[in-house]
Amino acid sequence: MIEFRQVTKRYGSDHTALRQVNFGLERGELVFLTGHSGAGKSTLLKLIMVMERPSAGEVIVGGQVLNTLPRRQVPYIRRHIGVVFQNHQLLFDRTVFDNVAMPLEVMGTPARDIGRRVRAALDKVGLLSKEKMNPLQLSGGEQQRVGIARAVVNKPPVLLADEPTGNLDPDLSADIMRLFAEFSQVGVTVLIASHDIALINDLGRRTLTLDHGRLTAGVGAAGSWHG
């Protein structure tokens, strides 16, 4: 589903965020991405989202080589990638429902389908009763789950998460991780950037480790990692 081939990303002439990164993620895999801060985790996610383009190498998502993708095609790629942020990126001028509905509106989904699918997504994260509330009225954990509902509402084949549990206590973090695991079970490729080593070790999943832009662990396929 996601493949990096010899990907290098340089910012200017002195800062290299990623050096010849190689890995591949299968459909339905749940993989962690870890490393010290500044190791290149966010850069890697941005390359998948086409927020950045690689300086060298190829990024392939869903069979599509992103390097040469014309700018106007970028939105259509992003519709197949759900993203969850540490700071949720929710809009506080509208209800929970309208926040979650955004990816569908962007795609031009008919109104009656929007209602059905938004409620399905909110139900999945356990917030169906709060659809009419403003995100500001929700707790941090609930806000994060609204963000997750928004990321999955259009059933993307790829789900990215950047420090999704950064601000949450361990119990809530475990809840969120359980959600991600459920998505991967129905075939969604999930990539979670996190430095919460304890949580990652608990779950025992394949982990990509970045160190100063180099991938030092987790290159192999899921099976070989678990051994």
Binding site: M49, R72, P75, Y76, I77, R78, R79, H80, V83, Q89, L91, D93, M102, P103, V106, M107, R150
Partner: peptide, 16 residues
Amino acid sequence: RDEILVAKLVGGTDAF
């Protein structure tokens, strides 16, 4: 600004 960012993130075209 925030709304525009989110719209672009979830795949909103320039026209949208």
